[in-house]
Amino acid sequence: MSETMTIAPEQKAATGNSNKMLFAMVGIGLMCALLIVLTYEGTKPIIAKNKAEALEQAIFKVLPGTVTTAGYYWGGNAFSPLKGTEAEGQRVYAGFSESGTLTGFALPAVGLGYAGEIRVLYGYDPAQEALVGFYVLENKETPGLGDKIEKDPAFLANFEALSVAVAADGNSLKNEITYAKSGEKQNAWEVDGITGATISSKAVTEALSTSTAEWVPRLYEAKERFNPQTQSHE
């Protein structure tokens, strides 16, 4: 003997309503996802353009006397003009004065601060064998504390003539950049830290120390080969 189950009309209505709600939610979700993708794709060129303009302005700030710039990348044994597809960590920007004299190089560096990555740009002048400028490109540090790396006059003064002289072997620095507690700086290659923003100022110091140790020797060796007209630097 078999039994037949009968579904009440109200149950059918409830099930139908649930399915309609589910389909509606899925549809809304897909529409939102599509809008997000379209918005991202639509704004990506604008964001890229704004970042490029901000970077260019930062280059002028960290390289005093610069009126024109040119981008290059390190291919492993030579510098070549940027094509636009190179990784950020392999890029370097040369600055030139109105007369075409090399004013120095602007390089990006990244450190890990209290609230995330700190992205900076610094200027290196091979003639002085020193860093001559510093600018924070991206900073998520605590307002009023960690963000002092962008505003504190004493801290920024570190980068007006921070020594990065190349050692006799030509492959390393005489003294790598090191951190000093606020008010305790004694040497030209030390960064005088910020009281209350120790982690942030240490992060900047470590980022600059790592970057300059890698880049300064090769840039110092190749400095005579850079000019506005050259296309590659063997």
Results as ranks from 00 to 15, higher is better:
147 D>R: 14
169 D>E: 03
160 E>V: 13
131 L>T: 12
122 Y>R: 05
123 G>Q: 07
157 A>V: 03
170 G>R: 01
107 L>E: 05
132 V>P: 09
121 L>Q: 08
174 K>A: 13
151 K>L: 11
137 L>W: 01
110 V>A: 13
115 A>K: 13
136 V>K: 08
133 G>I: 10
155 F>W: 01
107 L>G: 01
101 T>Y: 11
129 E>D: 13
128 Q>R: 15
178 T>G: 03
132 V>T: 15
124 Y>N: 10
102 L>R: 03
143 P>R: 07
126 P>W: 09
157 A>H: 03
177 I>C: 05
154 A>H: 08
128 Q>H: 12
168 A>I: 00
130 A>D: 04
119 R>T: 13
140 K>R: 12
119 R>D: 04
110 V>P: 05
164 V>W: 10
117 E>I: 04
123 G>I: 03
151 K>R: 13
153 P>C: 02
150 E>W: 02
141 E>D: 07
136 V>I: 11
135 Y>L: 09
161 A>M: 11
98 E>R: 13
118 I>T: 08
144 G>R: 04
156 L>G: 02
126 P>S: 08
137 L>T: 09
112 L>E: 14
164 V>M: 10
142 T>E: 01
170 G>I: 06
116 G>H: 08
136 V>C: 09
165 A>V: 11
180 A>N: 06
165 A>L: 06
167 A>D: 12
128 Q>M: 14
122 Y>P: 03
147 D>T: 15
165 A>C: 08
132 V>Q: 10
181 K>Y: 10
147 D>S: 13
